[in-house]
């Protein structure tokens, strides 16, 4: 017993005991479900049956128009979030960093607050602001502009305005803080040198800020890509219970949830999950090449 204790306390064994929880968690809650998810995607699973069907789920996916719609919705949403939630927060961060701005703490705090509210609460607020009732905020705005009130959440263009505003509302402040922390890491003497050389603000932004912010930009793009691709709850809340008219708000994860949980078709839903996994891995790979972590065809130069 005493020997065992000494063994467990030794400098050789201690590190393994420290990392043991991660190893267990990794195997039980990551590797196992990943493998079982891939296995299930080749099966037909119902209440009492579970049989192998080969690639039938995937063949069905290829013909499934709803699934294609879900993929294009997810990618479209991701594209919007990147187009809006990278440049604007970056510009806001540069402005916030300026010595001219007063009461910075107040603005930063207010801009961060949306990120504290849960998807349920923020989704509920936006759903009601975009309600088709005459008294909703958006319809009041329409009347003020001399237009007729419209059912906002029933057509794609108007409801997506709500969806994207919801996303921007929640994440603008967060992304601005990311860029601000990136700006803090830039050596201020570079700007002083540029001032001496008589550079304009735009030149300084283009030639100092933008290139030196690159690590932060890569980070923010990465999290935006994954958050955009796997978006579900925003749409779940905005339209209520994952049901949008003509599936205008259906996303990949929304479809996975609908088939797996709401319709109990686990095998097919797992195939949807595997497709999402493949898309995520492709993006990871593309990004590693783009950022130069993996180099292809450049061996000769070395």
């Amino acid at each position: 017993m005493k020997y065992l204790k000494k063994y467990l306390y030794s400098q050789k064994v201690a590190p393994y005991i420290f990392v043991l929880p991660f190893v267990l968690s990794f195997l039980i809650f990551w590797v196992y479900p990943l493998i079982s998810g891939i296995t299930m995607s080749f099966q037909d699973i119902g209440f009492s049956k579970r049989e192998w069907v080969g690639i039938e789920n995937y063949a069905k996916l290829l013909r499934d128009k709803t699934f294609k719609l879900a993929i294009s919705n997810s990618i479209e949403y991701m594209a919007w979030t990147i187009a809006l939630l990278i440049p604007f927060p970056m510009i806001f961060a540069v402005m916030m960093d300026s010595r001219l701005t007063k009461a910075k703490g107040v603005w930063k705090a207010i801009m961060y607050i949306p990120a504290l509210t849960s998807v349920v609460i923020s989704g509920m607020l936006f759903r009601m602001m975009f309600s088709e009732a005459d008294g909703s905020q958006m319809n009041k705005l329409m009347v003020w502009l001399g237009q007729q009130p419209i059912p906002w959440l029933k057509s794609k263009a108007t409801s997506w305005l709500g969806l994207i505003l919801l996303c921007c509302w929640r994440w603008t402040g967060v992304n601005m803080l990311y860029f601000l922390s990136g700006l803090k890491a830039i050596d201020s003497t570079l700007y002083e040198a540029a001032d001496v050389d008589g550079c304009t603000a735009i030149q300084k932004f283009r030639h100092i800020t933008l290139p030196l912010l690159q690590p932060t930009t890569i980070y923010v793009v990465t999290i935006s890509v994954f958050a955009g691709l796997s978006m579900f709850l925003e749409s779940f809340m905005l339209w209520g219970n994952n049901d949008s008219p003509k599936n205008i708000g259906l996303t990949i994860v929304g479809y996975l949830y609908k088939r797996g949980i709401q319709k109990n078709d686990m095998g097919y839903a797992c195939a949807v999950g595997v497709v999402l996994l493949v898309i995520a891995l492709l993006i990871n790979f593309a990004q590693l090449i783009a950022t130069g972590t993996i180099k292809i065809g450049k061996r000769k130069e070395e």
């Binding site: 990392v19 479900p33 990943l34 998810g37 299930m40 797996g260 797992c270 891995l281």
Partner: peptide, 28 residues
């Protein structure tokens, strides 16, 4: 050595959206 490998695995798990594991984890 294991420490370095495990850190790589930590990063790897961060590169896969959690939602992919949703259904198999639910079963598990």
């Amino acid at each position: 050595k294991l420490g370095k490998i495990l850190f790589f695995l930590v990063i790897a798990t961060m590169c896969v959206p959690f939602e992919i594991l949703l259904l198999p984890l639910y079963n598990e």
